[in-house]
Design a protein around this nucleic acid. Structure first.
Length: 860
RNA sequence: GCCGGUGUGGCGGAAUUGGUAGACGCAGCGGAUUCAAAAUCCGCCGCUGUAAAAGGCGUGUCGGUUCGAGUCCGACCACCGGCACCA
């Protein structure tokens, strides 16, 4: 064989082989166990970035591993092709979003192919294809018929200069990112999907899926199930006339006697009514309507309020309570009003302290005393005080007693509440799937019939910064006879909520899904960024249940197992600029000098030799100019090296720091592996492996081989810690390299070790393993080889090493027979010279023997 | 602000169920090979200490549980992800 590792030839040949033999075309076969492996499909933003490479390498490693386990594997790929960046590019470069998107797809498809991923490309689609989104439109009309869709007023970010709706991302410090104008909150009618109808099932079914606990916890908290009481307060205007009762929800009815004021949202009807003859309040409401709608912005805003002059009557005492407007109460949330108990809620406490509202404790502290409220609220539940007949009751009893009293009076009921809100799916944008609805001359709202579908998006458009182009295209929106089309498009989360199902039967042009979906679903392993832990993953779960209830599929959950991969990060370098900003330099253009211990001293720009500042390690991004181009790395080292480095440098869930020298190390290992095989083949023909009559050295290498099979199988199959699997294979390769027994028996043991290395690595570095497997004389291609089988008998040992501790500190190591009994281990440990030194003059109080591990002698 | 996470040598990380802290790799240092360099191979490599041992210290900080804590508990600090129109 060629003594030199030539990655480019090898990779070209392997990829050609897989393509000619259609190795990765997945065919439904009820007699075989299926494995559906899916990585989150990319948004075609231009070029592949390192985050994609990491995501798709993980998926490919698992797919190829499962294939070697004998499973019928399906790994598809497609494009999440609708979204804002295409519109932004269109505004900047005067390119229609469709052609920009398709060009990007072509570029990125080529890049994916150069990485050798085992995709079934026959299932590929882009979500901007009408053949895809027509089914989404069709399904939406069915949901309308089912009563799972409705239209209601909702708040959006309004740019008063560009006259357009802005995404939260486009609101920077309360201003429009293009116009710089102060953003206003504006109410417009929008389409909603009733995800809240499924809140309970979305919560309960988390028990049945194999997801990271942290993701499940985030989803649970997002759904936010709580048990509380909904109650109403009578209200009066400042002149004493009765108004509509004010309804609130509380999870702490036990604190009811401590309510000292009420707070309503700025857009609550009560607030609006109070503002009609109160200009100062009107100004405050206008101030509250400024800025973005995002919860992060609202929650970090300075908490402000103003009295309405109206009052509420306490349902039990009849006491008059002032009603405030507060900028932290949201109309979207619950009833848009809260009862405030400043003694036992920190936010209420801060508000009351600021505005001089009374703070009255009604819950005792842990010692049963009146809590100290000088520096904050006392939020822990406890026994009631200052609450009349309810005094002394604990949280549970008080909850029930007060709820029962309110219920008797017809003023309130126990209620289960969810934090989850319905899903607003309408966007006032062009580059998305048109919402299939029309409006009649008498104000009718009618979902389109099957015959009227699909509503194709017109592709030749001029996009500018002022609103949706569809609104300005009568040829699209005007249907004649006074009928007009809806010009809003779907949230792009709609497309990504069911694409995994469409991959099962992407070629069906007469139905959304067919029985093939039931063969492949659920996805056995789904891989993607942790940033999708809530929204995308929750919407996809919801959509799955909708499709199930409509009879399209049978599965309850889309993704049985989930792997959330970490970010790819890299060092940043900059120079301060004259205007106080920073000019960022790409790590590829910077050289770092180090001291004699390898610590970085300083960095210089290669181009001019002048120093640059080190800005710390950050997520790879355009803004910090610290992105490393995957293509440049593939062109330099080959795909296998890039894949190996990405899998080796960190476990998949953690962030991965890019390191050029780490990549070189990975490349070096592949060269060494190549040479290992070449030298082994040159050493002669191995004989038969006689596992019963091996020398000690042969037995030791063979044990290492099978220990490695054991570890790598567990690491890849169960733990998905590819880094430790690779480390184990490196150890085995190092051991095989040191092994210089060239007898026919020795060569047989070496052959087994080397073939094991090649097979265990083949999911990770498939090209080089394809070539090496063939060099090792196998007719069958590596891609069709089975995963190595573990021989338990090869793991047996005669002696094992134990450590001896004295008071928990390591003092000696012992080599003992594997079957040694406790007494002999204890006496060997006691008699060890160094142990004796530490026992000298002390009394042995206890000896702990952990079989196979250690002995701890406790002395005093 | 709220929800979730992370923190171990000069660096990436390993230690899977409470039981040897630092596997594997990178960087660095020393040597071999070479006319020389690259490549390759061999050795050393937490801090401190010693002639060499022994020993002491050490997993963000402070405290606790335990024969034994990177791992469990409490408080704190720093950083990261998400917060419903970025995808």
């Amino acid at each position: 064989m060629d003594a030199q590792y030539k990655p480019f030839e090898i990779e070209r040949d392997a990829q050609r082989f897989w393509e000619t033999h259609q190795c990765f075309k997945a065919i439904e076969d009820a007699s075989r166990e299926k494995f559906y492996c899916l990585s989150m499909f990319p948004y075609p933003s231009g070029k592949l970035h390192m985050g994609h490479v990491r995501n798709y390498t993980i998926g490919d490693v698992v797919s190829r591993y499962q294939r070697m386990q004998g499973r019928n594997v399906m790994q598809p790929m497609g494009w999440d092709a609708f979204g804002m960046p295409a519109e932004n590019a269109a505004i900047q470069n005067q390119v229609p979003p469709a052609s920009w998107t398709h060009q990007n797809i072509d570029t990125m498809r080529e890049q994916l192919k150069s990485l050798g991923f085992a995709y079934d490309w026959s299932r590929e689609f882009a979500t901007c294809d009408a053949e895809y989104y027509r089914w989404e439109q069709w399904f939406f009309t069915k949901l309308v018929e089912q009563g799972l869709v409705y239209k209601k007023m909702s708040t959006v970010n309004w740019d008063p200069v560009d006259q357009t709706v802005l995404a939260n991302e486009q609101v920077i410090e309360g201003r429009g990112w293009r116009s710089g104008a102060l953003v206003e909150r504006k109410e417009i009618p929008l389409w909603f999907l009733k995800i809240t109808d499924y809140a309970e099932e979305l919560l309960a079914d988390l028990e049945n899926i194999d997801w990271p606990e942290q993701v499940k916890t985030m989803q649970r908290n997002w759904i936010g199930k709580s048990r509380g009481v909904e109650l109403s307060f009578d209200t009066r205007s400042n002149d004493g006339t009765d108004l509509e009762p004010l309804s609130v929800y509380t999870t702490r009815p036990d604190t009811l006697m401590g309510v000292t004021y009420m707070a309503v949202a700025a857009d609550h009807p009560l607030a609006r009514s109070a503002a009609t003859d109160n200009p100062a309040l009107g100004d405050f409401l206008a101030e509250c309507a400024q800025g973005g709608t995002s919860e992060a912005e609202l929650a970090t805003r300075e908490k402000k309020g103003m009295p309405t002059g109206y009052s509420a009557l306490h349902p039990l005492t009849g006491r008059e309570l002032p009603i405030y407007v507060a900028n932290f109460v949201l109309m979207e949330f619950g009833t848009g009003a809260v009862m405030a108990v400043p003694a036992h809620d920190q936010r209420d406490w801060e508000f009351a302290t600021r505005y001089g509202v009374p703070i009255e404790p009604v819950i005792a502290d842990a010692d049963g005393r009146t809590p100290d409220l000088t520096s904050g609220a006392h939020v822990e539940p406890g026994a009631l005080i200052n609450s009349g007949e309810f005094d002394g009751l604990d949280f549970e009893a008080a909850f029930e007693a007060i709820a029962a009293r309110l219920s008797e009076m017809g003023r309130g009921e126990v209620k289960t509440n969810y934090r989850l809100r319905d899903w607003g799916v309408a966007r006032q944008r062009y580059w998305g799937a048109p919402i299939p609805v029309k409006y009649g001359p008498e104000g009718q709202t009618v979902p389109l019939s099957d015959a009227e579908l699909p509503v194709s998006l017109p592709l030749e458009v001029t996009v500018d910064a002022s609103g949706s182009p569809l609104k300005k295209m009568p040829e699209f929106s005007d249907l004649g006879d006074g009928w007009v089309r809806e010009t809003d498009t779907f949230d792009t989360f709609m497309e990504s909520s069911w694409y995994f199902a469409r991959f099962c039967c992407a070629d069906n042009d007469s139905a959304m899904l067919d029985e093939r979906a039931d063969y492949w679903l659920p996805v056995d392993l789904y891989i993607g960024g942790i940033e999708h832990a809530i929204l995308h993953l929750l919407y996809a779960r919801f959509f799955t249940k909708l499709m199930r209830d409509f009879g399209l599929i049978q599965t309850d959950e889309p993704f049985q197992r989930l792997l959330t991969q970490g970010m790819v990060i890299a060092e940043t370098y900059y120079r301060p600029t004259a205007n106080g900003g920073k000019e960022w330099f790409n790590p590829a253009d910077v050289e770092v000098s180090r001291d004699d211990k390898g610590r970085p001293l300083n960095a210089t720009l290669v181009a001019d030799g002048q120093p640059v500042e080190m800005g710390g390690i950050e997520k790879m991004s355009k803004s910090k100019n610290n992105g490393v181009d995957p293509q440049a790395m593939i062109d330099r080292f080959g795909a296998d090296t890039v894949r190996l480095f990405m899998m080796f440098a960190a476990p998949p869930e953690q962030s991965l720091e890019w390191s050029d020298s780490g990549v070189e190390g990975a490349h070096r290992f592949l060269k060494r592996l190549w040479r290992l095989v070449a030298e082994h083949l040159a050493a002669g023909e191995p004989g038969r492996l006689e596992s019963e009559s091996l020398s000690d050295e042969q037995r030791e290498l063979r044990r290492k081989t099978h220990e490695t099979i054991h570890k790598a199988s567990d690491d890849i199959g169960r733990r998905t810690t590819f880094n430790t699997a690779i480390a184990a294979v490196m150890e085995l390769a190092n051991a095989a390299g040191r092994f210089d027994d060239t007898s026919t028996g020795g060569l047989a043991v070496a052959r087994e070790a080397i073939e094991t290395c090649v097979l265990l690595l083949s999911p990770i570095t498939p090209h080089v393993c394809h070539a090496l497997w063939s060099e090792l004389g196998h007719e069958e291609a590596a891609v069709d080889a089975s995963w190595p089988r573990l021989d338990e008998s090869a793991l047996a040992r005669d002696t094992i090493e134990l450590v001896v501790q004295v008071n928990g500190k390591l003092r000696a190591r012992l080599e003992v027979a594997a079957d040694a009994d406790k007494e002999s281990i204890e006496s060997q440990a006691m008699n060890h010279e160094n142990v004796q030194r530490h026992l000298d003059g002390k009394t042995v109080r206890k000896v702990i023997v952990v079989p196979g591990k250690l002995v701890n002698i406790v002395v005093g």
